[in-house]
Amino acid sequence: MATRPTEYWRESVAEEARQVAAGELDAEDASTAELFPEDMLIRTDEVLQPFERELAALIDPTDEEIFAVIQHVVLALNKVNEDYDGAAYETDEREQLCEYIENSLTDNGIDVDAFAGRHGLTRHEITDEWRDW
């Protein structure tokens, strides 16, 4: 099952907090809590939860239905990113979100390479039409 990137991001925040508390890292050098504020993580989860439900509800989906679910999640993530002045998701986070979307599709029985190929895309391009982050 695809793991939400927010789980990894929360683990990073917790690990850095542990390092600061243990004296292994100066508080001035700690940045992950700033990079991943809890309200942004909550908002991202609020986007990913319905995406997971929408995918699970697809039974023998058409390509149009698959694209609609992808578009919906990407546009919602665009909104979160916009609300954080375009800085909610940096390069690594963008890649993790795209990988999560791809893995979620695969987990739901969709051959992502075949799906993308039918539309002249690679698996890494299936979000590009709508993605601003």
Score class of each variant (00 low, 15 high):
M1Y: 09
R4C: 05
P5W: 09
R10S: 10
R10P: 00
E11V: 09
E15I: 10
E15N: 14
E16I: 02
E16F: 06
A17E: 12
A17T: 10
R18Q: 11
Q19Y: 08
A22C: 03
A22P: 03
G23V: 04
E24H: 13
E24C: 02
E24R: 15
E24F: 05
D26A: 14
A27P: 00
A27I: 12
E28D: 14
D29N: 12
A30F: 11
A30I: 00
A30E: 09
S31P: 00
A33W: 05
L35N: 07
L35T: 15
L35W: 06
L35D: 05
F36S: 01
P37W: 12
E38Y: 07
E38D: 15
D39K: 15
D39P: 10
L41F: 11
T44C: 07
D45W: 11
E46S: 14
L48N: 08
L48M: 12
Q49D: 15
P50D: 04
E52F: 08
E52G: 08
E54K: 15
L55C: 02
L55Q: 05
A56H: 07
A57V: 06
I59C: 04
P61H: 03
P61V: 02
T62A: 11
T62C: 02
T62F: 07
D63S: 12
E64M: 06
I66P: 01
A68E: 13
V69T: 12
I70Q: 02
I70H: 04
Q71L: 01
H72T: 13
V73K: 06
V74Y: 01
V74N: 05
L75T: 10
A76P: 04
L77V: 11
L77D: 03
L77W: 07
L77R: 13
N78P: 04
K79F: 01
K79Q: 14
K79L: 08
E82K: 13
D83A: 09
D83C: 01
D83N: 13
D85A: 10
D85G: 05
G86A: 06
G86F: 11
A88F: 05
A88V: 06
Y89C: 07
E90Y: 13
T91Q: 11
D92W: 12
D92T: 14
D92K: 15
E93F: 01
R94Q: 13
Q96I: 02
L97S: 07
L97F: 11
C98V: 13
C98T: 12
I101D: 00
L105Y: 11
N108C: 00
N108D: 04
G109P: 00
I110W: 05
D111L: 07
V112T: 11
D113P: 01
A114H: 12
A114C: 03
A114F: 09
F115N: 05
F115R: 10
A116Q: 08
R118F: 02
H119I: 06
L121R: 14
L121A: 07
T122P: 01
R123T: 15
E125A: 15
I126L: 10
D128C: 05
W130H: 12
R131M: 06
R131T: 11
D132Y: 11
